[in-house]
Structure formats: C-alpha cells, structure tokens
Amino acid sequence: MEDLSLSDVSYSINSNSILEKISFSVGPGDWLCIAGCNGSGKSTLLRLMAGLIGPSHGCIQFGGTAFKDLPDKDKKISILSQRSNVNACLTVQDLVCLGRYPYLPSWGVRFSEADWEQVSYAIDFVGLNDLRDRSLDSLSGGERQRAFLALSLAQNGSILLLDEPTNHLDIVAQNQILNLLEKMANSGKIIVSVFHDLNHISRYSSHLALMRQGQLLEFGPTDHVFRSQSLSETFGLAIRVVEHEGQRCALY
C-alpha cells in the first residue's frame, strides 16, 4: 500500500517554530482535509508534503520511502497552490501539456501518443473539451481552476495537494471542483486539501486534521473529528454541529 505518512514532523525558520511534531498517515482513495485558522501552518504543511521544503525534524514517507530518497517525485505529487497562476497567454491545452513535462526526456519537447492521451483525458475529465484552444485569459474563474486541476491530472501523480481550491469561486463552480476531486479520490488518488468552508469538509472529506498554532489538535476519520467541541477548540469560536437530512453541518 502506498501510504503518505508523516512521523514527528516539525518545521522551523530561524528557531521560530512553524509546525510541531505532526504525525498522521493517509492511504489511496482517502481525502484528507486540513482545517484551522489563518497562520496555523496549513499551507506550510502542504508544502512539506509536496516536498517543496524539507522538515527540520521528523520524516515524511510515501510508500515506505523517505521523500528525500523518492525517485521521480515530480511524477508522483501534484500541488495546486493558492497562488496557482500562469504569466502568459497560454491556451487550456498548452497549460495542461505542462503536466506532462516530467515525463519528457530532458532534451525533448515532443509528446508521445501516451502523453497526448493523458492530456485529452484530463481536459475531458474536467469538462473543458470545447474550450481547449481558448486562451486562459478568456476563461471564467471556475473554468480556470478546472484547467489547473486538469494540469494536475495530466501529471498523473498519486498524491494531489490543494490549497483552498475553491477560493473566490461561486457555489456552482465550487460544486464542480469538489465533485471532480471526489471522482479523483474514488479513482484511488490521495487528496489532501485545505478548506475554510466547514460544510465542504463534512460533505466531501474522508479524514480531517484540525490544526492550531502549528500543532495537530486532532486527526481521524471526518465522522469522528467533525464535532462541536473539536471545531470550537480549533477556531476559538462557538461552533455547533447539527445533523440535517443525514448531513452534518457546522453552525457559527
């Protein structure tokens, strides 16, 4: 089983502790949501899991191999950050093709049949087939975000890390993105995402990690962790979890 596991992971900058002794493990098909106030270390944790920064202490492993020894990391882990952006007038297809770059030989720029198939599959999956030749500048926020999701999908990694992927989107676009992510999790990928909307967390995630001031307060299946007391403690607010037609909702 290719699990993503963190054991005693800490991260500090100039002796300033950002994350302290974080440990948990998620497996294929799991969708882990990380929740907490701004500045609680969620994005740093995601960047650590993406291998963009190294932990000060502890170890992050994927499939039993430590990250620093992991071959082809760029083919296994995708990240869609809060600031995902492209500084040029690329078409949707050009953007999604970037996801296949780790598979190209170092000197080559020509894609194989398999690369093109994966690109077409990714564009189809997010429903942008009619817009594949359109410039990104001409797309709506939701379509743009779906194009970036297709880029991650084209990369065909086992782990997808997302930092607030539904930011600034209307509820229709939010639903589209969340349903796509659910399909991706069902296909056996590990999804780790940061969300601020607690109702998204209860509706979609399988696991929940609650963070406060760089510490992991609670981790476990969402059904166990998504409780009034844990959420109130995490956010320092009176949060009540109620059940409505079989769905748990947070009121605050």
Binding site: S78, I79, S81, R83, V86, N87, Y101, F148
Partner: peptide, 21 residues
C-alpha cells in the same frame, strides 16, 4: 532552444513549477 521547456514551466507560479520538477 533547450531551455524552452523549462521556460514554459517557469510561467507557472513557483510552487507549481517546482512540483513539476
């Protein structure tokens, strides 16, 4: 012309381009 591929990746934000190698 060898850098064309890397320059395309550099069009993305830092985190995404680094995650693509």
């Amino acid at each position: 012309f060898v850098f064309a591929k890397q320059l395309n990746l550099a069009l993305l934000d830092d985190d995404t381009s680094r995650s693509l190698g």
